[in-house]
């Protein structure tokens, strides 16, 4: 049983592309979207368990230079429409 989560990023001005390039190197991140509004980037992560999510967030994502703030929202239920 896998765990999905959305990570919302606030990024320092002018660092967006560099951060995206680093995020795309992480295999557990399945999609990255640059958005308008209160966040700058939203990434979707699929991992095996919460322990792995913690490790990726703290050891990989938080190490990327240019990220000002992150918020992680774990998916409780996902509804896909055909």
């Amino acid at each position: 049983m896998t765990v999905s989560a959305y990570i919302f990023f606030i990024i320092k001005l002018g660092k967006t592309q560099e951060v995206i390039d680093q995020l795309r190197k992480i295999p557990e991140i399945v999609s990255v979207a640059v958005v308008t509004g209160e966040y700058d980037v939203i990434a979707k992560v699929i991992v095996e368990n919460l322990e792995e999510l913690y490790e990726i967030a703290t050891q990989r994502i938080h190490m990327i230079e240019g990220i000002e703030d992150t918020q992680t929202a774990v998916v409780e239920k996902e509804v896909l429409i055909e």
């Binding site: 929202a73 774990v74 409780e76 239920k77 996902e78 896909l80 429409i81």
Partner: peptide, 8 residues
């Protein structure tokens, strides 16, 4: 397209 119930 899809929607997810999330924490936070």
């Amino acid at each position: 397209e899809d929607f997810s119930f999330i924490t936070g």
